[in-house]
């Protein structure tokens, strides 16, 4: 039972993470692969504050989110002036560079990471309590993102993403919207990192490698990019499937590659057959296809 509850806690953390990534890449259209590093910043900041200063977990988690927000703004102000491939490369450099810093500093525990993160909730109700906290924050995250994207600001985000020049020509500052969306998404990833650190009481750099971007992207694409519930469904499916595979008792040498193959296959299948994802409406598939066709031919609908 403890194992199942732990998986559900992990799902809740990944719902927070994939929803925040969806805000950045799905709604904001900001092609970044640096999301794991903001998750890491939240986790490491929370862990270090908890260990060295004995601050309450909630304060540590919020401080982790704040550090992620500040780091995201630093990246945004330089990298968001460019778009597309350039943003992707800049975010990749930021992710790899900062992870190297984490791996090489003594106070971050180097490649071995940090263990003995304070256990803030003890006793038999520890996991159910974390389940409530993480589940509650996941629900709050989904609600908050839905509020943002379905309101006037969300319309502006969609407009900025789809036609940036037309958006700017209407007197709207696209850069401000990009920075705000990026900071909110990365701050939420920082919260997910803090929750992870306090629940599992151990963080190491390999948990935040750039490959985790692929997992997050898979969750978003499979669930439905640019939909509120898509990342929730994606996180549930993609955390549950690898756990289900563990019941097959396969050797570890087979297990890891198999998970990679499943992730890749799912992304490709959904991109070709169901670009709107599990949650996205069928009509969006047709719309996506039509838009792609028009863009590739340079034509205008008549």
């Amino acid at each position: 039972m403890e194992y199942i509850l732990t998986i559900v806690v992990l799902i809740a953390i990944f719902v927070i993470l994939s929803s925040s990534y969806n805000l950045v890449i799905g709604y904001g259209g900001l092609a970044t692969v640096a999301h794991p590093i903001f998750y890491a910043l939240g986790a490491y900041t929370s862990a270090l504050l908890g260990i060295h200063f004995g601050l309450p977990a909630a304060i540590c988690v919020l401080a982790g989110a704040l550090v992620a927000v500040v780091a995201s703004i630093l990246l945004a102000l330089s990298a968001l002036r460019v778009a597309g491939d350039y943003l992707l490369i800049a975010s990749l450099g930021f992710q790899l560079g900062l992870l190297q810093v984490i791996k090489n500093f003594e106070f971050t525990g180097g490649p071995g990471g940090i263990s003995a993160i304070p256990n803030t909730i003890t006793g038999p109700w520890r996991t159910p309590a974390y389940l409530l906290i993480c589940g509650g924050i996941a629900a709050l995250t989904v609600w908050l993102i839905a509020r943002i994207v379905h309101g006037p600001y969300g319309r502006a985000i969609t407009a900025m993403r789809d036609e940036e020049l037309a958006f700017s020509a209407l007197g709207r500052n696209a850069m401000t919207i990009k920075v705000v969306v990026f900071a909110i998404g990365c701050g939420i990833a920082g919260i997910a990192g803090g929750l992870y650190a306090f629940y599992f009481q151990y963080v190491s750099p390999d948990q935040f490698e750039v490959l985790h971007s692929a997992a997050m992207l898979t969750m978003v694409v499979l669930g439905g990019m640019g939909t509120t519930m898509g990342p929730v469904v994606g996180a549930v499916v993609l955390i549950a499937i690898p756990q289900a595979i563990t019941f097959l008792n396969l050797p570890p040498a087979v297990m890891a590659p198999m998970q990679g193959i499943i992730f890749t296959t799912l992304v490709m299948l959904f991109l070709f057959l169901r670009p709107a994802g599990l949650v996205g409406p069928l009509s969006r598939d047709r719309m996506a296809g039509r838009t792609a066709l028009e863009k590739s031919s340079g034509g205008v609908a008549e």
């Binding site: 969609t158 407009a159 036609e163 037309a166 958006f167 020509a169 719309m287 838009t291 340079g298």
Partner: peptide
């Protein structure tokens, strides 16, 4: 009013 891509197609 830019050429072509000048409305927000999803809205």
């Amino acid at each position: 009013v830019p050429q072509g891509h000048n409305v927000f197609r999803q809205l």
